[in-house]
Design a protein around this nucleic acid. Structure first.
Length: 430
RNA sequence: GGAGAGGUGCCGGAGCCAGGUCGAACGGGCCUCCCUGCUAAGGAGGUGUGGGGGCAACCUCACCGUGGGUUCGAAUCCCACCCUCUCCGCCA
């Protein structure tokens, strides 16, 4: 949520920021009008309330002095004001609701150093690991769904029987690999990040806080009977963990790492990436997230990116980092770096992590504030997060990249301790 | 799911079942000052958040789980909902 004061005091800079995203500015113009109207109306209403309160106090005093007849006159006067107040109040609520509705749907402003551009093509490649696209052997050019089927470690067909298309099932060593990846990702971050196992079903407010609602309702699974939503990422519960709290600056930054299932309807992508693990409705992900002061944000952003990138590198996967342009960053983000992994079997770069800085956009929605060490008052926090590891795509890239000529998978060093039982005998893993 | 109890400020806890000057007694904590060689003890004062207005001192509105209602006036009365706790039932 943008700062209404900023919109009021400097609408041009907000307009410019939204324009960089390619956002329609009509809503903003409407918002500016409504905000002015709201302030006029509430000022009138508050004056009426003050008057009613003053009259009521006089009525009380008169009754104590046994002057009921005089009180009756004042009561009558106050009753009339009360009717006016009621009407004004209704209009205030109406306008306030309209203001909030627009405010909740306006995206964040891109950071000043976020590259310009309208779409995917304008993203800036920050770095690419050396790799020779022609240098892959034939045995690496097999898509992971074929590899998975050959080795009996991925059973898409039966998953579809259970749950429908875009659901998957890992089996045997494949299931163990999921578990190993998650545990590795957590273990590498618990030095600094508090391990959390949050609920995966959350209330509406929780999804509003991160910006997933109200704009992206169609992307989320909703359990109607209980009015709960399945989280699309651990970012959702972690961002709300300190919701409506006032933290001390001394306790910042706060860092969390969480492994959860993630649920996405993928409503807008029907027919896209339907094979294999590239796009699924339910998957495992280890997310790292930080809450900090505005001054801490840049360092935290670099830290999270470094950690996500380091893990991918240590898994022996070829990757690149993109600085997403203003037209391609997510709704809530001010700046985002994507990490993409090269999967030779499908010959695609797969997005495996979005490392985002949300400035105060989510924090304002979630009412995440801190008390500065120096000076009085309260400040709005900044939130940042990124996937430490998103299982399906990493699983896919790993199985394709590390496939050996005999069809088995060479497990990279960091994962080996977690897969001991599967590294003996003539199983699929070596 | 059934029965009961309860949700008040940083914390504890009054006020509510006699509606009025209650943003809220009292205690604790915390901050400032005084006292003291230091600390403790003791003394004085202060200590919420958000909106609107003002250069400022300050003024004003809202907030006693949430949302409605009654009333000139609601933390206090009425209704609905949410949450917590205890017991019973059920269950991994």
């Amino acid at each position: 949520m943008l700062d209404l004061r900023l919109i009021r005091n400097d609408p041009d800079s907000v307009r410019a920021g939204l324009a960089r995203r390619g956002e329609d500015l009509a809503a903003l113009d409407r918002l500016v009008e409504l905000d002015a109207e709201q302030r006029t109306l509430t000022a009138e209403r508050d004056a009426l309330r003050a008057e009613i309160r003053s009259l009521s106090n006089q009525v009380g005093a008169l009754h104590r002095d046994q002057r009921a007849d005089e009180a009756a006159a004042l009561q009558e006067e106050s009753r009339a004001l009360g009717q006016q107040e009621k009407d004004l109040d209704a209009r205030c609520d109406e306008v306030a609701l309209a203001v909030r509705d627009i405010l909740l749907r306006l995206p964040n402003l891109p950071a000043v150093d976020c590259p310009d551009g309208g779409g995917e093509a304008d993203n800036v490649v920050v770095r690419v690991e050396d790799h020779d696209a022609a240098g892959y052997a034939d045995h690496q050019r097999v898509p992971h769904w074929e590899v998975g089927e050959q080795l009996g470690i991925l059973d898409v067909e039966r998953a579809v029987k259970l749950s429908g298309s875009m659901f998957v099932m890992y089996r045997g060593a494949g299931a163990a690999l999921v578990r190993a990846l998650c545990q590795l990702a957590i273990d590498r971050n618990v030095d600094l990040y508090e391990e959390v196992r949050p609920p995966t079903l959350v209330r509406t407010d929780t999804l509003v806080s991160t910006g997933h609602l109200p704009k992206f309702v169609d992307e989320a699974y909703h359990l109607e009977r209980d009015d709960l939503w399945a989280i699309p990422t651990a970012e959702v519960p972690l961002t709300s963990l300190h919701r409506d709290e006032l933290l001390d600056e001394a306790d910042l930054p706060r860092r969390f790492v969480a492994h959860t299932s993630c649920f996405r309807r993928e409503a807008g992508s029907a027919g896209k990436d339907t094979r294999g693990l590239l796009r699924v409705h339910e998957f495992d992900k280890v997310e790292i997230l930080a809450l900090g002061t505005p001054e801490q944000a840049a360092d935290l952003h670099a830290e999270i990116l470094g950690r996500a990138e380091g893990l991918i590198r240590d898994l022996g996967l070829v990757h690149r980092v993109l600085d997403l342009c203003a037209g391609d960053i997510g709704n809530s983000a001010a700046r985002t770096f994507d990490i993409e992994v090269y999967a030779p079997g499908v010959d695609q770069w797969l997005e495996v992590s979005s490392v985002s800085w949300f400035s105060d956009y989510q924090a304002r929605r979630a009412n995440l504030r801190y008390r500065p060490e120096s000076g009085k008052g309260t400040e709005v926090l900044h939130t940042l997060n990124g996937s430490a590891l998103a299982v399906p795509r990493v699983w896919a890239a790993l199985v394709e990249t590390h496939r050996t000529p005999d069809g088995t998978i060479r497990i990279p060093e960091p994962l080996r301790p977690y897969l001991q039982p599967y590294l003996v005998g003539d199983g699929p893993f070596r």
